[in-house]
């Protein structure tokens, strides 16, 4: 069994548990939707302003809802000390890490599926009309999940992990959210600014690659006491 195959088994287990309880998915989706609705009411009904603010609103909703999901996903591994059981298997720790991050990516993308049409509808901004947004969201979800998973796992046994996670994570995610917001903003420019769009999508790809390498490198040392 390859590392990817083993990672898929870990991810499949996480998603199976989530499909059964739907606890994280509903919480993240509801929170993401709530943020979108609040944002839509807070900003004045001005088409130009809404168009300018929508990218930021979208990525803030993803960041906050994603953080809730991260915390809960790793709490599940803490409840019966199942992270220890995973680490005790002969499966490479890389596969455990990739599996957890892959499952988290699916959950973050699910939140995007709720937030994008909702913001489009409430702000009357044509987010759903731009297929490259899907690529930006996919790369954003991967970067968020990879970086988030390594620190969530490291904080698993820390009592104040709920407070510490965003404090540690958000500074590292700033480049990702700047890139995501900028790529989305480029999509909404009239006419669409493709140079800017692909520059920032490329940036997201490089961010993902860099943090994937670093996370894979430090994961084992962060989860072993």
């Amino acid at each position: 069994m390859t590392v990817i195959g083993q990672a898929l088994r870990v991810a499949g287990k996480d998603l199976r548990i989530e499909l059964r309880s739907r606890e994280i998915l509903y919480t993240m989706a509801f929170f993401g939707a709530l943020l979108a609705v609040v944002d839509a009411f807070v900003f004045p009904a001005n088409a130009k302003l809404a168009r300018a603010a929508a990218p930021g609103m979208l990525w803030v909703a993803i960041a906050f809802a994603g953080t809730i999901g991260l915390g809960r996903a790793f709490d599940r591994e803490r409840e019966n000390d199942t992270m220890r059981a995973l680490l005790l298997t002969p499966v490479p720790r890389l596969a455990v890490f990739l599996g957890k991050a892959a499952a988290m990516t699916v959950l973050v993308l699910s939140v995007s599926l709720v937030c994008v049409p909702l913001l489009s509808l409430l702000l009357d901004v044509p987010l759903v009309e731009h297929p490259p947004l899907a690529l930006a969201l996919l790369l954003g979800a991967i970067g968020f999940s990879v970086t988030g998973s390594v620190f969530s796992a490291a904080l698993l046994k820390v009592r104040s992990r709920d407070v510490l996670l965003p404090v540690i994570l958000y500074p590292l995610l700033i480049p990702l959210f700047v890139a995501g917001t900028s790529a989305t903003a480029a999509l909404l420019e009239i006419p669409r600014n493709d140079d800017k769009l692909w520059y920032w999508i490329g940036f997201l790809g490089i961010y993902d690659l860099a943090f994937l390498v670093v996370s894979v490198w430090i994961f084992e040392s962060m989860v072993i006491e």
Partner: peptide, 26 residues
């Protein structure tokens, strides 16, 4: 290993827990 905690997933059944861990050991 048998620890203080069960090291098993609360949302999965006994058969599912064992099947998952067995798959990780091939």
């Amino acid at each position: 290993m048998l620890a203080h905690a069960s090291l098993c997933y609360a949302e999965l059944s006994a058969r599912e827990n064992l099947a998952f861990f067995a798959s990780l050991y091939d």
